[in-house]
Design a protein around this nucleic acid. Structure first.
Lengths: 340, 340
DNA sequence: TTGTAGGCGTTATCAG
DNA sequence: CTGATAACGCCTACAA
């Protein structure tokens, strides 16, 4: 069934020359006579010769593969980051191996180990919820100790020294909260996740800071911290019912969208009675009714940057690491869920 | 910088035994004495020996990698298929290399060639818009001619003989249209894409069939066929304004969501004045206001099935191909954008 | 201008 | 029980 791909050896035998002659001829080396080169190249094209990547990888100790491990691929943000990585990497001749940790520590570890045995030249990843919760980064350390380049994005940790790309989450939340405050909102609810998520921690901080800058103090009763990014319908709706906010900031796309619908069902008009802003400028925000003002995280750019940083590491064997953390600026995209 | 991973050779030298002894010892071969095995295994663990996958791939002519080429990763459906593939493949010890064709014929070809040189054991893919439009499948044929297993899903073609997984798009559209008709809707608009998309062709067919079964005939004025899956705000809104439908069927998630908002802005109430049903039971449909009744395509299952079929081919070298086309049943998920 | 030989890391066969 | 050898497909320094 599997018609074996033709190899240098096959060509050599067929044309009655040596393997190295064939190899050189195909590379247009000028060690080889025009005659021989033409003969070999013609034959190779005729039989559709393609060098075997695996053999080349073994020889070069370079696979031209990048391993990407992300918590999931359903949420818009990760999706766009993956797209950014893909774009840049393909441009540079790299393939992208995508693995989903599914927010699970165990699966993240398994995936890393699966890829760390020579399958890839480097990793780009965002920590799973499980990993952030466990606060266990040994699998990352093993990888970096082996000298495999690693770039963390979005959900990062100080425990590991490596290149990183994040957005300024604190600033993003600050800008959003400020916007609500400037609209005159007094009771701003925060829908977020627990502080063990590095991004949530920072977003929660930005929220607090903005309140303080406007002479208000954070009321814990106005904050709902859920353990995961999944919607807990019960808790979100009872929270909003209780708080009855005139402004909502959501630390992710999905809580905000869901929260807005809950409020609408309770009779609130958006943005007349309550303004809503959410993190992630995704399809949900864009197509909600009304469209939701959002903090754009520039995922695609983030992915490109991460890929760029990684490939740079892979291709240049610096002996002084000099790790960088790039911080992108979030942008507030104003839509109809807030006043303007 | 890059601390070379330890190899069999290193262990052999260090322990003063032969490479093959080490290899066997690590495999717990009973050709080797208990003593030697223990010594070798201890040493290997201590120095964190991991067999080099690339070398193994070269030897076995099996990479344990699956190449997945999809048009994009932003739309919910493809996202879920990729997740299904990932799940099943990882379970079986395979990595998934994801490439995005970005709906472009050229990029699809480039990606295939990139992977077809030994990097993967088989392909799972869904045709790009460009490919369906060009009607050019030579890159697929080259791959299958080489004996590389290929599974097509969703956007497939009869031109290529290989395993396929699809849903019954005609039935899906039929069920949706029937639902609208049974509600008493008389003027059902169809938002769809051009017929060169295999899926659209079938969905358009199902729409027509349902109308006919209810004694109505298709009115071309009630159908808007756009060239791509991107929202053309201008055309969609002027179309809906003109038609002023009491029912809308959308052949994808995004047109339906957008169309519903257009109608709402025009003063239509959903579902009082107009019912809306869209293909793809995704986040947009689920979180729209009101939530949209949708044709579920069971992407995750589709992905798992595709992966299963592919891995079966990869691992068993059938000499009679006996290609299969699996057809999944779509499900109508009823929500508040239709009456019940 | 062409060919030989060795190596990338692993495994399998066969000899000792 | 252990080891030498060849092979997977390619590349390259060196020899002829």
């Amino acid at each position: 069934m599997l018609k074996r791909q033709i190899t240098l050896k096959d060509i050599a035998k067929e044309l009655d020359v040596s393997i190295s002659t064939v190899s050189k001829a195909l590379k247009n080396s000028d060690e080889i006579s025009r005659d021989t080169k033409e003969k070999v190249q013609a034959f190779a094209k005729l039989y559709n010769y393609k060098p075997n990547n695996i053999a080349i990888s073994l020889k070069n100790k370079r696979t031209k593969n990048i391993g990407v491990i992300v918590p999931d691929i359903v949420h818009y943000f990760f999706t766009t980051v993956v797209r950014g990585i893909e774009n840049f990497a393909n441009e540079k001749g790299y393939n992208v191996i995508v693995c989903l940790s599914n927010e699970s520590f165990d699966k993240e570890v398994i995936n890393m180990e699966m890829l760390a045995n020579g399958s890839i030249d480097g990793f780009i990843m965002s920590l799973s919820a499980g990993t952030e919760k466990n606060n266990d980064f040994n699998h990352l350390r093993e990888v970096t100790d082996q000298g495999i380049p690693l770039v963390l994005f979005d959900r990062v940790t100080n425990e590991i020294e490596c290149d990183k790309v994040v957005i300024d989450d604190t600033l993003g939340a600050y800008l959003a909260t400020k916007k609500l405050l400037e609209e005159g909102r007094k009771k701003i609810a925060l829908l977020t996740t627990e502080d063990f998520f590095s991004v949530s921690r920072n977003r929660n901080l930005g929220y607090k800071k903005a309140l303080e800058d406007f002479g208000m103090e954070l009321n814990p009763d106005h904050v709902l911290k859920l353990p995961y990014m999944d919607i807990d319908e019960e808790r979100i709706s009872s929270f909003l019912k209780r708080v009855s906010p005139d402004g909502v900031l959501s630390a992710n796309e999905i809580f905000g969208i869901y929260g807005m619908r809950v409020l609408q069902k309770l009779g609130f008009e958006v943005p007349k009675d309550v303004s809503v802003i959410g993190f992630t400028d995704g399809l949900l925000a864009k197509h909600a009714n009304p469209p939701v003002t959002a903090v754009a995280q520039h995922g695609e750019k983030m992915g490109e940057l991460a890929a760029k940083m990684l490939i740079e590491r892979v291709e240049n064997d610096y002996d002084v690491p000099n790790y960088q953390t790039k911080i992108l600026e979030p942008t507030l995209i104003e839509r109809d869920s807030t006043n303007n």
